[in-house]
């Protein structure tokens, strides 16, 4: 990386992305306070991609993929990692250029690097969502996912949202020239107390890997899955008006339960207790929740063009 503009730490890359997308007019949100598998699960993307109301948000989302845990030993794989997510509705005509601008902002000058848009259609069977787009390659490495949402929760997206997802660790390792994720500087290497990614996450990766693969109590998890499913259904079935006669459908609380079910499913999957055939059935159950939440959300104010 010959660029003099090069960031020095993981957090600097995040900060530059925040600054860049804030300058493009995005609301810079904070991570959702639940365990999710990807930034897409944040209601700021899943739910807000629905309906006609314009939307522009950017945020970091801690993401958990229990099956990817490697006890902190694999240079590239983590069970807990960060995604940077940008969602803009309707997708602006210059979204590709805006995206390339963000690469420049973190020190990847497309005049020196080889940036390519390579076909990659995105689909989330658990969210009943799909879109077309690319994975973006920089010098042969996938640095982002670029998607035009076509459907979410079984609903056509009208207008279409443009979604950008950056895998922050991988991107940062590339920009910072780190060979192992744990060696990557998290704060500035010149700080009084320099912290590497490993200083912060090596131990947690070990602990969660052990818990995910060996210890998580499957009976409890199965029960929690059922509970989340039941609670989601109960919330959705509740009358739309409250005791005082106000119309307050509860799409977001219901969707929280959907997120919960999805994550519990991921944990059960990591524990290896879900067979191939059951797998499809569980994914279908989560999708049913996502669809029901989407059905309700599109009837709410947040899905309508403000008058």
């Amino acid at each position: 990386m010959t660029s003099p503009n090069r960031p020095r730490s993981f957090q600097e890359i995040i900060l530059r992305l925040q600054t860049y997308w804030a300058a493009q007019g995005c609301a810079v949100l904070q991570p959702y306070d639940m365990e999710v598998g990807a930034g897409t699960f944040h209601p700021a993307t899943t739910l807000r991609a629905l309906g006609a109301r314009p939307w522009a948000a950017a945020y970091v989302q801690p993401s958990r993929r229990p099956t990817d845990g490697r006890y902190g030993e694999n240079p590239n794989r983590l069970q807990h990692y960060y995604q940077y997510q940008v969602i803009i509705k309707p997708s602006p005509p210059d979204l590709q250029d805006l995206y390339l601008g963000s690469l420049k902002a973190i020190g990847l000058d497309p005049m020196v690097h080889d940036v390519r848009f390579v076909e990659d259609d995105w689909e989330s069977p658990t969210l009943g969502a799909w879109g077309l787009g690319w994975e973006v390659w920089c010098d042969g490495m996938e640095v982002s996912q670029f998607t035009y949402f076509q459907q979410v929760g079984g609903h056509d997206c009208k207008p279409v949202s443009g979604e950008l997802t950056y895998g922050l660790e991988r991107l940062a390792m590339y920009v910072l020239g780190a060979g192992h994720v744990m060696d990557m500087p998290f704060n500035d290497p010149g700080a009084a107390i320099p912290l590497s990614y490993g200083d912060i996450f090596r131990q947690t990766e070990q602990e969660y890997s052990r818990w995910n693969f060996e210890q998580a109590d499957t009976e409890t998890l199965f029960r929690h899955f059922k509970d989340a499913e039941a609670e989601c259904a109960r919330i959705l079935a509740a009358p739309e008006t409250d005791a005082a006669g106000r119309r307050i459908p509860m799409a977001h609380p219901a969707y929280d339960q959907c997120i919960k079910a999805s994550h519990i499913f991921n944990l059960l999957d990591a524990r290896g207790v879900i067979s191939v055939t059951e797998r499809q059935a569980y994914i279908g159950r989560v999708r049913a929740l996502a669809k029901a939440c989407a059905d309700l959300f599109v009837t709410t104010d947040a899905a309508q063009v403000p008058t």
């Binding site: 309707p90 602006p92 259609d121 035009y148 997206c157 009208k158 207008p159 279409v160």
Partner: peptide, 9 residues
Amino acid sequence: PKSMRWGAG
């Protein structure tokens, strides 16, 4: 084989 909409169009 697969096509898409974009923006508000």
